[in-house]
């Protein structure tokens, strides 16, 4: 009963958020729509006993990523009146065709049983279970992922910190420029 009520409240909210995200002219409104969808999905995780994944969803997506999106959008000051000219030729027909193709593929895959159906037994998404799985069976993928993330962040810092001299503005000394890091 409680789950049904939660669903009835938050499913439309998730859909409205998704539509707002796609349809809104203003990028800030789009970001807020996405935030609403993410939050509603987190509520669904809670109603399916996935408390940990719900909290992760909120802290990572709603907390960190959406704050970053909003921050960047506000910092570069996007005007509400955006240029709506389409750069790619025939963008709309191609988009519709690709969307229909994706829909067909998903439906075909679903009818083939490619998507595993629910087993009927409730998921126990407590933090103990998640950590047992994560640090037991999936320890190698977990560590590899963390290594990948560290490489990415070190790379970001390197790109921001060490620039070739020509980009940094020292144009006089062009002989020593090629590829050299300052």
């Amino acid at each position: 009963m409680g789950e049904l009520v939660v669903f009835v409240i938050f499913a439309p909210l998730a859909l409205v958020g998704a539509l707002t995200m796609v349809a809104a002219r203003n990028p800030v409104h789009s970001a807020m729509g996405l935030l609403m969808t993410l939050f509603s999905v987190a509520v669904f995780y809670v109603s399916n006993n996935g408390h940990f994944i719900a909290a992760v969803q909120v802290i990572v997506y709603a907390g960190a990523i959406m704050t970053l999106f909003l921050f960047v959008i506000m910092l570069i000051g996007v005007d509400s009146a955006q240029d709506n000219q389409e750069v790619l030729p025939n963008q709309r027909p191609i988009a519709v065709a690709l969307g229909l193709a994706l829909l067909g593929l998903v439906l075909a895959a679903g009818s083939q049983g490619w998507v595993p159906r629910g087993t009927g037994s409730p998921v126990n998404g407590t933090i103990e279970n998640v950590s047992d799985e994560l640090f037991g069976a999936w320890i190698l993928p977990f560590e590899v992922t963390s290594l990948l993330l560290i490489i990415a962040s070190v790379g970001t810092i390197a790109l921001a910190q060490f620039r070739p001299r020509a980009i940094a503005g020292d144009e006089a000394d062009e002989s020593a420029v090629d590829g050299e890091l300052v």
Binding site: F39, V58, I59, G63, A64, L70
Partner: peptide
């Protein structure tokens, strides 16, 4: 910690 980050938004 998760829910308090909503206030930032």
């Amino acid at each position: 910690l998760a829910i308090s980050s909503i206030s930032t938004v």
